[in-house]
């Protein structure tokens, strides 16, 4: 299968390891990955902040970058960005009166998948350990991000994949369905409420005793990780793609001092 990678702007610029891991997983399964060079961003920051007019060129750019027939499906390691591509792009195009863009955006959205959705529903991955060789001997907890959970209805796909990684100790997170408080510009416009939400999320993560918190959205993980870092916590955040890509030969690179389950430091 020929798969077009939508890296998303935050992963492209801040978390390239997540995109590299996505590529590694898909290539390991024998698929061809392409990276449409015109891509930039899904535009949800603009849309969610009410700047629809400014969002239109961003959306139009994404649609132009991904409307080629030269690939079978597109994939992004982000529930939030895929939800934006699928739901917001046609909606904003329509509200700005561009029916042609609305149609093109809907066509792109129809062939765009979130990574776990692609792995489970299309590529039939049920056991990451045996089918992907995933190995990750760490104590991990997992936060399901809101947009993946509620807009894409990803259910427990990401968690199921993580559960089948060899060596992992996946600890359930209390109140997993509670938002971490990121919400894009919400974290700045309503910084106090956002911080209060983050505080509770961080406390729940800390209570698990895990050394890492995984998830499916780099933006939420940056938020959670930024909060944990500010608190002086040693708990790191890591996208689930990087855990799936991690093998004994090529273990995931984790910043900071993270204890292996065997007691050795990972780095």
């Amino acid at each position: 299968m020929k798969i077009a990678l939508f890296a998303t702007c935050i992963v492209d610029a801040m978390y390239p390891a997540t995109a590299k891991a996505t590529v590694a997983i898909l290539e390991r399964l024998g698929h061809e990955v392409v990276f449409p060079g015109g891509q930039a961003c899904c535009g949800q920051m603009h849309v969610n902040s009410g700047y629809f007019k400014e969002a239109v060129p961003v959306i139009a750019n994404h649609v132009a970058a991904f409307e080629s027939d030269d690939y079978d499906v597109a994939v992004a390691p982000s529930g939030s960005c895929v939800a934006s591509v699928k739901h917001q792009h046609p909606m904003i195009a329509r509200s700005c009166g561009d029916r042609a863009l609305e149609k093109r955006a809907a066509a792109v959205g129809a062939k765009t998948y979130e990574l776990s959705e692609l792995l489970v529903d299309v590529l039939g991955i049920t056991d990451a350990g045996s089918q992907l060789g995933s190995w990750f001997p760490h104590r991990v907890t997992y936060h399901p991000s809101c947009h993946g959970m509620r807009l894409l209805r990803l259910g427990d796909r990401q968690q199921r994949l993580l559960n089948t990684v060899r060596g992992i100790d996946l600890i359930p997170l209390p109140e997993p369905d509670q938002c971490c408080g990121f919400g894009g510009t919400f974290s700045m416009k309503n910084a106090d409420v956002s911080s209060a939400m983050l505080e509770d999320k961080a406390a729940n993560i800390t209570a698990t005793g895990a050394s890492l918190c995984s998830g499916g959205d780099a933006s939420c993980l940056m938020h959670i990780g930024g909060g944990l870092s500010r608190q002086g916590s040693s708990i790191r955040t890591l996208h689930f793609a990087e855990i799936l890509a991690s093998t004994e030969q090529h273990p995931a690179q984790i910043a900071g001092e993270v204890q292996l389950l065997s007691g050795k430091a990972a780095q």
Binding site: C9, D12, A13, P36, G37, G38, Q39, A40, C41, G43, M45, H46, S49, Y51, E54, A55, P57, V58, A60, N61, A65
Partner: peptide
């Protein structure tokens, strides 16, 4: 910020 980001994020080259 939104205006600048719109310019930067509406082209793979500029980003």
């Amino acid at each position: 910020g939104m205006k600048a980001a719109s310019w930067a994020l509406s082209s793979g080259k500029r980003l």
